[in-house]
Simulated scan of single mutants.
Amino acid sequence: MSPLLVCLVIGVAIALSTWVASLITREYSWVDRIWSIAPVIYVWVFAAGGEFTPRLLLLASLVTLWGIRLTFNFARKGGYRPGGEDYRWAVLRGRMSQPQFAAFNLLFISIYQNAVILAFTVPAFTVAEAGTAPFGGWDIALAACFLAFLVGETVADQQQWEFHRWKTSERTAGRTPQPGFLQTGLFRYSRHPNFFFEQAQWWVFYGFAVAATGVWLHWTVVGAVMLTTLFIGSTIFTESISRSKYPAYDDYRARTSPLVPWFPRRPAAAGERTA
């Protein structure tokens, strides 16, 4: 059986399982709980279908490291515990009628997001189809970039983790945390550095399909495109919540790059026009 077909069968089973689990538990983060696990499974299936060539073993190893790191970060935030639902789903439920959210849960959370997860791993299928294309310098460079972005996301998530632990300790002590949102470290240069590094890793992953074939554009680029589109929507929604909670967030938005880390813009002087 084609490894792509095997992954499609697994993907359908996961999508169905996450949807059923959400109906039973009334929690809607089941896709989040498999987000770091399913890609590891898919890429190892593609590696097996391609007879474990050096390039495929490299891809599978990189994605396994990615999965271990992300699983750890999600687990320590309580994502696998009962009640560990993403806070944004509760906000969204409040903005939708019950039938609207039921349709959203089925079509977007359970089906579309699982399709995205499978789609951003399919460059490994292109690599498997390329057979024994020579392993070379581009593979090493891409692996180094992937690992660098992995380190960047690890640092961003650690800074966020430490900040939220500090917020919890302030509330426990009866104080109101000030500031209410993270804007130091990597978050001084990007409002969402962890989002940037996550997407960058999967664009690099697509680069291995280019390295294996020498062709720049494959249909498997659709996964990286879908992931970026998903993050755009997620970022807009997340920031709408932050802006409603923190009056100072607009000032932060005005001076800080939305995604790609860059030097912060200087605050506007009194009376100076801003974009």
Rank of each mutant, 00 (worst) to 15 (best):
G131N: 06
C145E: 05
S257R: 01
I68F: 10
T168G: 13
F237R: 04
M1F: 15
G185Y: 01
A224S: 09
P134H: 10
L106N: 02
W30H: 08
L59D: 02
A270G: 03
I232T: 11
V9R: 09
R171H: 02
Y249K: 12
I109S: 03
P82C: 12
G137V: 12
F263C: 06
L118I: 12
T238R: 05
L59H: 07
F231S: 08
V155D: 01
L118F: 15
S36Q: 02
G137Y: 11
L186C: 13
L230H: 08
L56V: 05
W19H: 10
A269F: 03
R81M: 13
T71I: 05
I111H: 03
T228N: 11
P258G: 00
F104C: 11
V151C: 05
L118R: 06
V31T: 13
W203E: 01
S240A: 14
V260E: 01
F196I: 02
Y80V: 09
P123F: 07
I117Q: 04
V43Q: 03
L58I: 05
F108C: 07
T220L: 04
H164T: 13
E198I: 03
V20I: 15
W219M: 00
W138P: 14
M96A: 07
R55P: 10
H192V: 12
A148K: 02
G214Q: 00
D86L: 07
I109W: 00
P258S: 06
R88V: 15
F108D: 05
Y87H: 03
P179I: 12
V20P: 01
W219G: 06
T213V: 03
R266Y: 04
E85G: 09
T228S: 07
R171W: 14
H218F: 00
V215Y: 00
R255P: 14
